[in-house]
């Protein structure tokens, strides 16, 4: 990138890689919008107990008499149900914000664990080569040849339902993507001089792997990671919708949508519709950010 492209106002400051990254990311207004929306969603989820008019998990706060109210009705407790209520009289807005919490925790958590496992195995495969490499990559191929939903179904059929099992299923389904990505980058990087230098210094293998090789494999890993978070959230919602995911007492977005399914046929659309919109906005905003990250971090597209 030449200096001429940098906007004048930051050109006089010292250009750090991070600052360049930020300014390149901000070139796309759509991606910036996606980021802002995602930050708002994350903040809503984090501060859920202080924002929502109701604690949707506290059965004492729910009044069955408020059940299936249309959006905008004033309930027994005195506040307005902006997005209506579900069959148990739960305020949909509160339910959605708490549901976002679960969806984000499950999605981000499983993506993070899968990243740790997948990236380590990918690094190992690239660095060790030979038999280790081919065993790990065979596993990756096997995993990737099955559709994610099928692998997840299989795992949940054995382990049973529950939030931990969903996370395990998502991790087992996703690790292969990280492993393949990291291996691909690491294979190129390990032939560079700095790795040779590190080896000449007789540094321990784990130090070479994690302090020298890994940081240089980060850009594609970040891109894949962002996309995988969105995928994990969508997959968790799908599994919960099928009744295989999180328990009914603490519904995620997918389960909220499933709960509203039967009422939708009688025209009570809001129970399914609004959680769906929340899910949609979350996934699309993450994907927009991921798309732009890919463009910015891809060295082939560098100007």
């Amino acid at each position: 990138m030449s200096d001429a492209v940098i906007p004048a106002k930051i050109a006089d400051k010292v250009e750090t890689p991070f600052r360049r990254f930020v300014s390149e990311f901000a070139e796309s207004k759509v991606a910036l919008g996606g980021l802002v929306v995602f930050i708002i969603i994350a903040l809503l989820a984090i501060f859920a107990p202080w924002i929502t008019p109701q604690n949707p998990y506290d059965l004492a706060e729910l009044d069955i008499m408020d059940g299936r109210m249309e959006p905008g009705t004033v309930g027994g407790a005195g506040f307005t149900f902006l997005l209506g209520t579900d069959d148990q009289g739960r305020d949909m807005l509160s339910g959605i914000i708490y549901g976002l919490r679960i969806s984000l925790i499950v999605g981000a958590g499983s993506a993070l664990i899968a990243c740790l496992i997948g990236a380590s195995l990918g690094l190992l495969a690239a660095y060790a080569g030979g038999r280790t490499d081919s065993v790990i990559m065979r596993l990756v191929d096997l995993q990737l040849s099955f559709p994610t939903i099928l692998a997840a179904l299989m795992i949940l059929a054995f382990l049973g339902k529950g939030i931990m099992n969903v996370v395990i299923a998502l991790v087992l389904v996703e690790w292969a993507y990280y492993a393949r990505t990291v291996r691909g980058t690491a294979l190129v990087e390990r032939r560079r001089e700095y790795i040779e230098a590190a080896q000449c210094l007789a540094l321990p293998t784990h130090r070479i792997l994690f302090r020298h090789l890994l940081p240089n494999c980060l850009p594609p890993l970040i891109v894949v990671g962002t996309m995988q978070v969105a995928r994990a959230i969508a997959l968790e919602a799908t599994l919960s919708f099928l009744g295989l995911g999180v328990p009914i007492t603490e519904p995620s977005l997918g389960l909220l949508i499933a709960n509203g399914y039967e009422y939708m046929l009688s025209g009570k659309y809001w129970i399914s519709f609004y959680p769906g919109i929340a899910l949609l906005i979350t996934i699309v905003s993450i994907n927009l950010v991921g798309d732009q990250l890919r463009d910015v971090l891809n060295p082939r597209l560098k100007k």
Binding site: F241, G254, I257, F273, N287
Partner: peptide, 14 residues
């Protein structure tokens, strides 16, 4: 690519 299939199905029904 990014819409969850089941939700689109529900919207179609609706």
């Amino acid at each position: 690519f990014s819409l969850p299939t089941f939700w689109v199905g529900l919207m179609l029904i609706m």
